[in-house]
Amino acid sequence: MQTNEISKLMQESARDAVGYVAEQHKLQLDFSLASLQDIDTVLTTLHQQQQQQSHSAELLFTLSNIMGAYVGEVFINNYGGNWHSNTADNAAPYISVHLSDKEFPFASVCYHKIVQDNSISVADYVEQAAAIVMQ
């Protein structure tokens, strides 16, 4: 998949996140840095649901990827960077944002917040990532 195809896919996935969050969580996302607080709220709700009854692997994959796409688009809009497909491990390819020789796997961060560690803040992760690349 070429860079422009990946970018288009991630932009579409981010729009899917906006629709999902509006429909299922009654929050309006606007691609601002402040909206990442809403993403954290949604991921916290998903984490709580996951603790009560596990989501299917397919749903976890989809939610992690659309939320990660949204976070990545917010990051790119505010700090720059581009989407990159990492296929070094054919069994576990992933898409991340690259900027200044750094890689930010936002979907992975979302997945870990849902499944393992609700104390993770996507908003804080983006702030830290921005600080790293702006040094």
Score class of each variant (00 low, 15 high):
133 V>A: 04
47 H>L: 07
44 T>N: 08
93 P>M: 06
114 I>K: 05
33 L>E: 13
40 D>T: 14
102 K>D: 02
107 A>W: 06
68 G>I: 07
126 V>A: 05
91 A>D: 15
83 W>N: 00
106 F>R: 05
82 N>I: 15
119 S>A: 11
106 F>T: 03
95 I>H: 02
30 D>E: 15
56 S>W: 14
55 H>A: 05
104 F>M: 15
95 I>M: 09
75 F>S: 00
29 L>K: 11
125 Y>E: 10
47 H>E: 02
56 S>I: 12
94 Y>C: 00
103 E>H: 06
46 L>A: 04
103 E>Y: 04
45 T>I: 15
43 L>H: 04
95 I>V: 15
47 H>W: 02
20 Y>T: 12
25 H>I: 05
37 Q>S: 10
52 Q>P: 02
131 A>C: 06
15 R>H: 12
111 Y>D: 09
59 L>G: 02
1 M>F: 01
130 A>L: 05
24 Q>E: 09
87 T>C: 04
69 A>P: 06
76 I>Q: 01
117 D>G: 06
86 N>K: 12
52 Q>M: 12
77 N>C: 08
62 T>S: 03
27 L>P: 00
114 I>H: 01
26 K>Y: 12
35 S>K: 10
1 M>T: 09
38 D>K: 10
14 A>N: 11
41 T>D: 11
14 A>T: 10
96 S>T: 07
111 Y>F: 13
98 H>W: 11
9 L>M: 13
28 Q>W: 11
97 V>D: 00
130 A>P: 05
70 Y>D: 00
84 H>R: 15
62 T>H: 04
76 I>F: 03
76 I>W: 01
18 V>T: 09
99 L>D: 06
67 M>T: 08
60 L>T: 08
95 I>Q: 03
133 V>F: 08
59 L>F: 10
24 Q>P: 01
43 L>V: 04
29 L>Q: 06
87 T>H: 07
62 T>Q: 02
112 H>W: 03
105 P>A: 12
71 V>K: 03
98 H>M: 14
104 F>G: 09
115 V>N: 06
66 I>Y: 01
3 T>Y: 13
47 H>F: 04
18 V>P: 00
76 I>E: 00
118 N>L: 13
59 L>A: 09
10 M>Q: 12
119 S>E: 12
56 S>D: 10
113 K>Q: 08
61 F>R: 10
119 S>D: 11
28 Q>C: 07
49 Q>H: 12
120 I>M: 11
121 S>I: 09
133 V>Y: 07
69 A>L: 05
90 N>W: 03
57 A>M: 14
74 V>H: 01
121 S>D: 14
87 T>L: 05
34 A>C: 02
1 M>E: 03
108 S>Y: 01
24 Q>G: 04
73 E>A: 10
97 V>Q: 03
49 Q>V: 08
27 L>C: 09
135 Q>L: 14
78 N>I: 00
89 D>H: 09
53 Q>C: 13
113 K>Y: 02
55 H>Y: 11
30 D>I: 12
1 M>N: 07
118 N>W: 07
60 L>A: 08
39 I>A: 03
95 I>T: 13
24 Q>M: 10
16 D>R: 14
80 G>I: 09
53 Q>R: 15
4 N>H: 11
117 D>C: 07
126 V>S: 02
79 Y>R: 06
46 L>Y: 04
120 I>N: 08
112 H>G: 04
84 H>N: 11
44 T>L: 07
35 S>H: 13
72 G>H: 10
118 N>Q: 15
97 V>C: 02
26 K>R: 15
49 Q>G: 13
134 M>V: 09
